[in-house]
Each structure stands twice: as structure tokens, then as C-alpha cells.
Design a binder for these strands. Sequence first.
DNA 1: AGTTGATGCGAGTGTGGCTCATGTTAACTC
DNA 2: GAGTTAACATGAGCCACACTCGCATCAACT
Lengths: 212, 212
Amino acid sequence: MTSVLRRRPAQRRSAVRVERMLDECALLLDEVGYEALTTKEVARRAEVPIGTFYQFFRDKQALVRALALRNLDAFLERITQRIAAADLGHWTDLVELAVDEFVHMKRTTPGFGVVDFGEVLIAPGGPALPGTHRALDEARDNNEIVADRLRLLTKELLDAPAGSGLDRALLVAVEATDAVLKLAFRADPAGDPQLIAECKQLVRRYLADHLP
Amino acid sequence: MTSVLRRRPAQRRSAVRVERMLDECALLLDEVGYEALTTKEVARRAEVPIGTFYQFFRDKQALVRALALRNLDAFLERITQRIAAADLGHWTDLVELAVDEFVHMKRTTPGFGVVDFGEVLIAPGGPALPGTHRALDEARDNNEIVADRLRLLTKELLDAPAGSGLDRALLVAVEATDAVLKLAFRADPAGDPQLIAECKQLVRRYLADHLP
DNA sequence: AGTTGATGCGAGTGTGGCTCATGTTAACTC
DNA sequence: GAGTTAACATGAGCCACACTCGCATCAACT
């Protein structure tokens, strides 16, 4: 994994502490949001001295990024298992399943409503030099990882390898899904069911161009 | 308009100063991003004492929200004019036009790449009380305003008033467009043309369910 | 028991968001 | 034009937060 962490926790105790910090970060995000979240409070609640906190996390952003990454891992883990268990007939079932799992995590995983897998919009990375393509290299977008994984899963499902535009299409689909589901949970803390349904429809219609 | 401002600038001089602050805010957003943007620096560049800054803006968020609102006004103004001038034949032309205008503003309007019309993800508004639907009343989402306006424009275009699901569908479409275009500009500062094309396709396919 | 390197720690520093007491101007009265 | 009052302008200063740094502690090995 990309090292979001300054220092990899070597011993058991450290690893537990890092988990605790992430847990408390998630809870606090739900309580007060990103801006009002303070590193001191996270450290205090996790019963970790502030100095130690900064041994592991370069800054506040890194903390939240680490949480987003943990969320991502959990999500991929879960859909992979569910796919293995379900034995889907059609690619639309995969859409259904992925969205449902996302919704499920929104409902049950602390902090997921605020950050899910995503960077909390932050910095444009300095004066935008012309001609500089910034994605795809260093700070690879998490949604891209999701798309990547879904592509593998899809190709596995469909023995016939789909068209070449599929990669881009999946990325677009993931990004759109993310946005519409955020809307659904903004409108209703439990996730507006109609908007969730629309989200699935949106993705199905769009992907129909790229999949059989 | 909702009063984002603490005090409405009464005299000409004040109004100019508010504009200057918004201008500098936009430029700074492009240079350093939201987190690194400081109210002090905005005030300094706009040649406004910090105290005066806070006469007009309740806090840093309010400043950015005001900018987003100005962007929104400009956008609606422009597409309204372009629609009047173009005399479109089909609703797909409207999609085309709206997306193009959005892209145009991303390219030319300072700060638009960072905030466009949107709140910079911030707070969940205190401990999430169960059963509390938070949208649609006080802090109405800006994208919702866009959707609203587009609905009016669409209905004007199509004399036959479309189905009732249209409102929701437009909202979904706007949200998705926003997300995919953000992706397009993350991948390429000038806006990845292929992703922009995909964005239009996504919306066209989806709305085809709701429009003739 | 001694030596060394990793890890733990929290008082302290710099800075940013925001306020508030005081100074300045505008508007209006007699 | 002097007097009165209310709106507005100003920036030194306060508080709280992100983050550091140098010393303490511990683990491992000799």
C-alpha cells in the first residue's frame, strides 16, 4: 500500500493504537465534521499522546486519508466476498450489489458518510502548471482504485472481454455513483430510497453502451 | 437571495470591496486551495482590514459560499442568454450547451475549478439527530438551484410538460455531471475531452427515460 | 550492566480564525 | 456650523489548533 503512514507500526501495541486513532477519527467525523475535527481530540479519545499521533500521521489530512483507505479496503473486501457468494447472472447484478454494499457501509460504518473513500477536497497542489496532468501517478485517486477493481471483477464475470472504453466508463460510473449517493444521504440521513434507485438506473443505462 | 453576508454593502465603496474580496478569494483558491486559504491573506490582497472582512463574512466558509453563489449566478445568467440566442431543437442540445458552459467556466473563471457552485465539504451540522431530513429547507443545495432552473428551461423548451419524475432526474443529472466534470479536470487541468464527452453521454442516456 | 537504536512523550511554538474596544465618518437637527 | 447620534472602519490582541523537538523510556543484544 501507499504509505500514508509516516511510520509503519512495528509492534502489536502500535498497530492497535493506530486502529484506535482511526476509529476515533471516524466517530468524531460523524459528530463534528472534518473542519471541526482536531488532532488533539482524536489523540485524547484514543488515549494516545499527541506526539505519538504525529509519529504515525504526517498531518490531519493524512489521518483522514488513512481512514478513507481503510474504508476502501473494507469495501473491496466485502464486495469481493459477496460476489463470490452470489454467483451473479448478469453485469447489472454487479451494479446492484456494489451500490447496495456502498449504501450499507454508509449506514453502518462510522465516518463513512463524511469521507467514504474520498479525499476531502483540499489542495490543487500549487500553481497549476500548464500541461501538467496530475492524476494517475503519485496521488492516485481512490475512486480509480475502485473502478480498477470493478473492472477486474467485471471481466472475470464476462468471459468475453468487453470493449476498450470500458475502463474509462467504469471510472465515470463510479464517480457518478459516488456523487448521487452523497446526494441521497444529504437528502435523508438513512439514504433516500428513490435517489438510490435512480442512481442504479443512471449507471445501468450508461454502462449498457459498454457491456452486453 | 439568502443572506450569506452578515451585512449587505449599502454604499458603492463597500460593494466594490466585497467584490474585491471575492475576486482575491477565487485567485487564492486556485493558488493554494481551500485549506491553505487564509482570511488574513484575502483581506491583505483585497486591501481591506481584517475587521472589515468580518463585517461582511461571518467566517471563512461564508466567504467561499458567497463565491460559489456568485459563480452560480454567473452560470445561470450565461446559459439563459445562450439558450435565448441558440433556439435549440431538442433537449439533448440543452445538455450539450449546459455542459459546455460549465466547462467554459471551469477554464476561465478563477476559483471555479475548486468550488464551482458547491459547498466545500464541511460539517454534518452537529450530532446527527435521527429522522432529521436536512436538505430542502434552510441550506438549500446550490446544485438543486441549478436543477430547478434547468427544469424551468426544459419545460419551456418542451411545450409538453414532461413526467413527474423529471425533477428528481434533473437533480441527479446535475449532481452526476458535476462529479464527472470534476474528474475530467482532475485528470487534465484543461479538462479531459474524452471524459467530457462521456459526461454528456451519461446524462443523455439517463435523461432519455424522462424526456421524449 | 552497559551500549545503542527505536519509540514514547507532552510542554512549547507559530499561526490562523475571529473579536471588540476605540476611532472615524455620515446623516440629520436646531 | 456646532452638536448629537448612529452606522461603519480598524487592527491589536485573544484563543485554539496544528505541529515540533528534545528528552525520557524501553527493547534488544553484548
